[in-house]
Design a protein around this nucleic acid. Sequence first.
RNA 1: GCUGAUGUGGCUCAAUGGCAGAGCAUCUCACUCGUAAUGAGAAGGUUGUGGGUUCGAUUCCCACCAUCAGCUCCA
Length: 585
Amino acid sequence: MSEENLYTFENEGYRKTYWHTCSHVLAQAMKRLHPEVKLAIGPSIDNGFYYDFDTPEPFTEGQLEELEAEMRKICKEKLKLERFELPRAEAIAFMEEKGEPFKVELIHDLPEDAVISFYKQGEFTDLCAGPHLDSTGRIKGNAIKLTACNAAYWRGDSSRETLQRIYGIAFPKKDELDEYLAKIEEAKKRDHRRLGKELGLFMLRDEGPGFPFFLPKGMTLKNTLLDYWRKVHKKYGYVEISTPIMLDRQLWERSGHWDHYKNNMYTTVIDEVDFAVKPMNCPGGMLVYASEPHSYRELPLRVGEIGLVHRHELSGALHGLFRVRCFNQDDAHVFMTREQMQDVIQETVRLFDEVYSTFGLSYTIELSTMPEDHIGTVEEWERNQDILKAAITAMGKDFVINEGDGAFYGPKLDFHLADSLGRTWQCGTIQLDSQLPERFELEYTGEDGQKHRPVMIHRVVLGSIERFIGVITEHFAGAFPAWLAPVQVKVLPVTDRAEGYAETVSAQLDALGFRVEVDGRNEKIGKKIREATLEKVPYMLVVGDRDIENGTVSVRHRSGEDLGAMSLDQFAALLGDEVKEMTIK
RNA sequence: GCUGAUGUGGCUCAAUGGCAGAGCAUCUCACUCGUAAUGAGAAGGUUGUGGGUUCGAUUCCCACCAUCAGCUCCA
């Protein structure tokens, strides 16, 4: 990398430094306008920066503008940022004198041998490891935007003080800021909650917070997605089962879910016995495996389940289809011998590759390691983590480590999908587990005639069908590819003389397996086209007197492209080709 | 769950301490029309729920519910 490149905004290190200095400018502006406010912390983040403040009164969005104005002033003042260090005791005394209790706490918690540094700009000094720009004059004042103010807990701990977090974004050029804000607007237009309503996919009601209702179009989408899922899984050798939604509490105690997950589980009593609604499908899957003896010849045994699970999520965490209290996992458990682990993991990653590429979604992989709350020995965990690493490394794939974020029973690979706006969503996961087979005493008979314990993976590709529908709704901005679109073709008669013809065309396409509707309303063709386009139906077939006479359909794509008149056979071949590309034989 | 904001016909949004309005959608009628909105009319609301203040509350106050932005958590 050239020296010069280090100072461009595309350079992540420079960008973060720029935003970090912005956060100091924000804190300085806050102190100037509201000296009574206490400072917490103010880092840069992936998309800008924030600063947490302890304010006597909650901050409101209306107050952001005066802060921005003060920030612009500070930039104009071109204040030099100067770094200095203090010994621990002096550093504490310094912040105590300034009346900054959060800073004092931070210094107290720094390791014994830590260098304690400060950055000073004009009258403002902050505890900070740096680095920073050399002057507030480096920041383009009119390309700063404070985007939100919200609550956040001190140190992310819900038992501690609630602070006011102010978020901001900044760029070296005003154009770049405008471009960024336009992108945010675009994301809002794609919001799956809005599109879900506009396109009639799903709804949420006060009567069932976090429990989505699927409407006819959304149900078609969901079923199409599941048809595809089943075809792919069949190709990879999976069988499918379905296990009960509610099972005896003792089963959950045995699986460990009761100990580790009971706060999120819905429970009930049936004939004086405690039952729990499943938050995961695994225990049911264990019972199915354990219900009959198995031979090594059957392994790896791939058992899929579209399982409806319920989890009691905090009310404030609910968010459209992204975070719900009941959803379908495209779950599967693969039982195998230890020797098969690496192959099975790689085969699973290949399946993931096939599915994600179908939707044009790229991904990054995270390896989540042993959490504090876990079962099994450290040695077992490390062994399993190494197998996961080896499997993906051998496939030439990169990963980052997400320390301590594994499932309680084993380490996992998480697949974070990037959508068309570059936002990421965790969907797929492959979790390696040697604990549940132990707890459920699963066995298979080996070549040697002896009983052995299998190991297993838990895996989901789409994750939650509901969340995945939310993700692809935003990814495609509601304009689903033809194979997925709830309605693939809309036949639009120009006048009611063409209605009979339109019905015939529709019936023929329907017989070929296409999803087709006729707009037979007494409206002008322009209006029908407008509405079908807004519904994002891939193809419109305009049919009028000319078409009746020539036996054609006039094809228009939702993009606005006029494909002209063609025979119905020609159109069916065209659509058939488009749809075939994306589906499995 | 926590902090803040919000809640008005199916949808998007007005308005007001004194009879709650518009556009779209719906229904009826007319028009029969060739590539992004034809016209006219009708119907549709206990203003999230429950209390309180007031002569009078949709408006002000309280509680609850839900939603939104975050925090925490997560598929």
